[in-house]
């Protein structure tokens, strides 16, 4: 039984090979190499401007890649985007858009439904279940702009869940959310991980709880380190990513001990 579980979890692989991306000639990230797999939660972290969001966008083909590729189970990721759910940064959304929370979550079913068709009853059930899982079903008819930051984030996570994806790319999901939502998100991480999904999470700063992640990808325009906590959070790595001052401060923090 355990063997089967391990085999199942090992079945999904995301390979980032030599990925280089940027806008108009300038490179934001260069030569990123990483092998990620199903059943792990990976924290992408680094200083401001390190290219964390850029890495997610480049992986998903949301911006021009200068070289390299991202493969999911050996096939280019951009050809199987249905298998990936993406939650953009809060700042990418116009929260005054006239739309109810339910319809936002329903967008997770757009591709599965297909062109020229109304969403099936099954799709509506999946969306209702996803909203319920995030504790948002009761507020689903509210306009998205009338919800709190944490509630809005949970609606977007419900949308990602409704997509029934294998991999999840979350861009700073903890920005502007309350403690309750934070707990809901961490519980979701554990649940998805147990189901063999891959989570790639860009995090805002080092003060977040690191216990919820399996591996860390420390980034500053290139990969500084990729591995577990002990491998990544060394004074040398942090100095290379953040500069020596910050690294010192971070290593005094309890999370590092």
């Amino acid at each position: 039984m355990i063997v089967i579980l391990i085999l199942m979890q090992a079945s999904m692989r995301l390979d980032i090979c030599n990925l280089t991306a940027g806008y108009r000639g300038s490179t934001a990230i260069a030569n990123i190499n990483a092998q990620l797999q199903g059943g792990e939660v990976v924290d992408v972290l680094g200083p401001n401007g390190a290219g964390k969001s850029t890495l997610l966008k480049a992986m998903l083909g949301l911006m021009p890649c200068l070289q390299g590729s991202t493969q999911l189970d050996g096939q280019p990721l951009h050809q199987q985007l249905r298998r990936v759910a993406y939650v953009p940064q809060r700042s990418a959304i116009d929260w005054d858009y006239p739309i109810a929370a339910w319809n936002v979550a329903m967008m997770g079913r757009t591709r599965q439904t297909g062109w020229l068709r109304p969403p099936s009853r099954q799709s509506r059930e999946i969306v209702a279940a996803a909203l319920d899982r995030m504790g948002m079903l009761a507020l689903a008819q509210r306009p998205i702009g009338e919800l709190s930051g944490g509630q809005q984030q949970r609606i977007f996570l419900a949308r990602a869940l409704a997509q029934e994806a294998d991999a999840f790319c979350l861009d700073e999901p903890f920005v502007g959310v309350d403690k309750q939502t934070e707990a809901v998100i961490y519980a979701l991480f554990a649940e998805l991980k147990a189901a063999g999904k891959l989570l790639v999470v860009v995090s805002h700063d080092l003060s977040e709880n690191l216990d919820h992640y399996d591996r860390f990808l420390l980034l500053n325009r290139q990969v500084i380190a990729l591995g577990d906590r002990a491998q990544v959070f060394t004074p040398e790595n942090l100095a290379r990513a953040y500069g020596s001052q910050t690294a010192f401060a971070v290593c005094q923090a309890p999370c590092c001990n």
């Binding site: 998903l60 959304i93 109304p118």
Partner: peptide
């Protein structure tokens, strides 16, 4: 005919693109 796709795109262009639209 294309209401749901246009709604997705106009609300969240990045998300729409990431979903393969």
């Amino acid at each position: 005919l294309f209401y749901k796709e246009l709604l997705f795109y106009s609300f969240d262009p990045l998300g729409a693109r990431a979903s393969g639209l």
